[in-house]
């Protein structure tokens, strides 16, 4: 991937972000969000660009990117399905939802479909325990899941 500079729009955002903190480094998490939005995912070249822009070492950026689970480190699937597996959701039947998704998509948790459309992940508590089982697809929450509801959602994504 080539990532030599930020677009003008991203650069404007970064300039604004930098006014919020007394150090450049403190803008790292938000700037990584900007970078991910612009480049699709955070490839090593993007880490270097971010490091240069914020005057921190690429190693520092790498350390941060790999610490946090949400930054995409490889080309993302079109739909990233993240099903909560923590106790309240587990009591309310998330295992069935996960099994159902595995069968439907023909992949295991942590895998991507061959066409790159879906990735299935199991994640920890999403703070939706009262509407369990819950999942996120990309940024959006889906709650009170049933197998039928999952079928409907996948059908919608496939349109």
């Amino acid at each position: 991937m080539k990532a030599e500079r930020f677009s003008e729009a991203s650069e404007r955002e970064i300039v604004e972000l930098l006014t919020r903190y007394p150090t450049k480094q403190a803008a790292l998490l938000p700037v990584l969000w900007v970078a991910e939005r612009e480049f699709g995912y955070i490839a090593p070249e993007v880490m270097e660009l971010v490091a240069k822009r914020l005057d921190v070492s690429p190693a520092h950026v790498y350390g941060v990117v790999t610490f946090y689970t949400m930054y995409q480190k490889e080309p993302p699937a079109q739909f990233h399905i993240q099903v909560c597996q923590t106790l309240p959701c587990a009591m309310m039947g998330c295992d069935k939802i996960i099994e159902h998704l595995k069968n439907k998509l023909g992949i295991k948790a942590g895998e991507k479909t061959k066409d790159g459309r879906f990735k299935l992940s199991t994640v920890e508590c999403l703070a939706s325990c009262g509407t369990a089982p819950a999942m996120r697809v990309n940024e959006t929450y889906y709650e009170n899941l049933t197998e039928a509801e999952v079928d409907r959602l996948i059908e919608g994504f496939n349109k």
């Binding site: 150090t23 480094q25 403190a26 803008a27 790292l28 998490l29 938000p30 990584l32 969000w33 914020l54 921190v56 941060v64 610490f67 946090y68 689970t69 949400m70 930054y71 920890e124």
Partner: peptide, 21 residues
């Protein structure tokens, strides 16, 4: 300031480190 997926950042000093980048 948006976090990026790490439960431990709810611990107050981890949160501060995270805020510092």
């Amino acid at each position: 300031h948006r976090g990026a997926g790490a439960y431990i950042c709810g611990e107050e000093t981890a949160l501060l480190n995270s805020l510092e980048g």
